[in-house]
């Protein structure tokens, strides 16, 4: 069996890579390099600009390396109280939000992965319905308001605390990774479902827990829509809302509307810093994501696979 395979492999390369193939490979290389540059350069540009002299950046003098290295942008970011407060709020909302997500999603996913669970079918249908039809923004808002959750963090963390997609990923994970024999053996020893879940299933589900933490965590960290709808009190705003204010609404307060030439120059400098601060701000706000990126990449891809293969 092996011998012919080897000879086949040896013969394969001269046949497989004709002159046309070499050209084709070259085209692939050029195309992919182009894609790589198009995606990477804007990201790289933000990084080098955040370390460069604002005035040079504004003049277009920064291309490949930071020019006039400075940390002024970062200093400006850390002086901005609203940003720090938003950062703290976001960290808190993400931590609390993810905890609630896990508490709801993982047990539900496990219960629905059990083929001997009598309510499995009806509960699945119950969740599927929510995927296809929803009440929309205003009816949901009215419910949240009726519960007195407007202008509290609960409006951000409770309403979406179990998403069907993530629940199905958990369910699939459990039905493929927890063998029935394990349950049968535990049952013979007199172990009930709750005990089985807490002492056997949970310790075996590190991978899916990581996927859930990242899926939900990235969602909480990046979202601004529910804060926009539900939070009026600026002190409670998450980071993304403050970012929106600075990056998109340009509402950094410039305290000096004065017009002497020197002060005008100073004002220009401040404006440049505020432009500059935007680059640093983008970096600072993405730090959690960048630190976690290796894990994020690994587990997100895994999550997509679980979601796709067995849905």
């Amino acid at each position: 069996m092996t011998a012919p395979a080897i000879t086949f492999k040896k013969r394969r390369s001269p046949i497989g890579r004709s002159r046309g193939d070499v050209v084709f490979d070259a085209i692939l290389f050029v195309f992919l390099t182009l894609v790589f540059l198009i995606v990477a350069y804007p990201l790289y540009f933000v990084i080098i600009s955040s370390f460069s002299d604002p005035i040079v950046v504004a003049r277009g003098g920064v291309t490949f390396l930071p020019v006039g290295f400075t940390l002024d942008g970062y200093k400006a970011v850390f002086k901005e109280d609203t940003v720090l407060r938003g950062y703290a709020n976001s960290l808190m909302y993400t931590a609390i939000g993810v905890s609630i997500n896990l508490l709801l999603t993982i047990p539900t996913g496990y219960a629905l992965s059990r083929k001997d669970f009598f309510a499995r079918g009806p509960i699945m249908i119950f969740y599927m319905v929510t995927v296809f039809i929803g009440g929309g923004m205003m009816p949901t808002y009215l419910v949240v308001r009726a519960l007195g959750m407007v202008n509290t963090m609960w409006a951000l963390v409770i309403p979406g605390s179990i998403t069907v997609y993530n629940m199905v990923v958990c369910r699939t994970f459990f039905s493929t990774n927890i063998p029935d024999e394990l349950l049968d053996a535990a049952k013979l020893d007199g172990c009930g479902n709750t005990r089985f879940f807490t002492s056997i299933v949970v310790p075996l589900s590190a991978a899916v827990t990581a996927i859930m933490v990242l899926y939900y965590g990235v969602g909480h960290w990046n979202s601004y829509q529910s804060a926009l709808i539900y939070l009026n009190d600026r002190k409670k705003w998450p980071l993304q809302m403050e970012l929106r204010n600075i990056l998109l609404l340009n509402s950094i307060q410039m305290t000096n509307p004065v017009m002497t030439p020197e002060q005008l120059k100073e004002k220009e400098r401040l404006e440049a810093i505020s432009e500059m601060m935007k680059y640093s701000l983008i970096i600072v706000s993405s730090v959690p994501m960048m630190v976690l990126y290796p894990f994020i990449q690994k587990y997100f891809v895994k999550g997509v696979m679980i979601g796709s293969v067995k849905g």
Partner: peptide, 20 residues
Amino acid sequence: FCVPGIAVTVIFHYIPLYGV
């Protein structure tokens, strides 16, 4: 195991459906 998830879904998905 399913009760908390069902409760949240009823309150924030099914009641708004009526709200339509």
